[in-house]
């Protein structure tokens, strides 16, 4: 049991030593996951709204696919991305395998369905009423899109937080396409997995604490400023 307690003591020492390698790993994790959440948003929000507010044949099938993709295991997505990016794969000449770019691509594939699914679900229900109301008040296509984004603001933020949470905490996809290369593609989760394998529990715990703190802070900030606000408007 001692190693757990020692682990925590060592963890705090590590955190407050501001080790440049640790800082670099944290920053890379944030950069990769923020980037993929951003791309996931740019793709997932408009598509989710568009699919949600329109009625078309096969909408049920689309939503079933979407919900399946929302819970796809990260390793599978990592594997899928690797097949395309590997040297002999269709995008092999771009030489993206084992780079931060590859990690961003894999995580974008991971979070886009999450963001899209949440937005789609809400746009299908409350979005329809908003569109109808906007139309009866003379809103044109463009006005309606702006109106929808504003009305779904809270939901979009929840989607972002959820997407970011999934990105920053996954290990399977970044491990496969990033390769956990020291100083280049090593992120918090792959660092933890590696150190745990080597029996270095204290550094694992230290990084685990940092990861949890970061998740907690991003969530609190978003909840406080946006979702809290949004709930106030609820009946």
């Amino acid at each position: 049991m001692d190693y757990i307690l020692n682990g925590f003591v060592e963890a705090f020492r590590l955190i407050f030593s501001f080790d440049p390698e640790i800082i670099q790993i944290v920053l890379l994790s944030l950069f990769v996951s923020f980037s993929s959440t951003l791309y996931g948003t740019l793709i997932g929000v408009p598509l989710g709204i568009l699919l949600g507010i329109n009625n078309f044949r096969g909408k049920k099938v689309v939503s079933r696919f979407l919900y399946t993709f929302m819970s796809f295991p990260p390793v599978i997505i990592g594997l899928f991305t690797a097949l395309f990016l590997a040297r002999s794969g269709p995008f092999g000449q771009l030489q993206l395998m084992y780079t931060p770019t590859a990690m961003i691509i894999a995580q974008t594939i991971l979070v886009t369905p999450v963001i899209m699914g949440i937005v789609f679900n809400n746009a299908s229900t409350s979005g329809y009423e908003v569109v109808q109301t906007g139309k009866t008040l003379g809103a044109q296509r463009w006005n309606i899109l702006i109106l929808l984004v504003l009305e779904l603001k809270g939901v979009i933020m929840i989607a972002l937080v959820t997407g970011f949470g999934r990105a920053i905490s996954e290990v399977g996809a970044v491990m496969i396409v990033g390769g956990n290369i020291r100083g280049f593609t090593r992120v918090m989760t792959t660092f933890i997995a590696m150190n745990n394998n080597m029996g270095q529990y204290s550094v694992s715990i230290a990084m685990g604490l940092i990861l949890m703190t970061i998740s907690f802070i991003t969530n609190s900030v978003l909840y406080h400023f946006i979702i809290g606000d949004h709930n106030e408007y609820r009946d």
Partner: peptide
């Protein structure tokens, strides 16, 4: 279509102030 409008007993008001709701049709015009 743009000269007609429709309102119900369960209206969908936008999540903004009463003033901004009423101003909306004028703002988009």
């Amino acid at each position: 279509f743009s000269e007609m409008t429709y309102s119900t007993h369960t209206p969908t008001l936008f999540s903004r102030s009463v003033y901004e709701n009423i101003a909306y049709p004028l703002k988009i015009r």
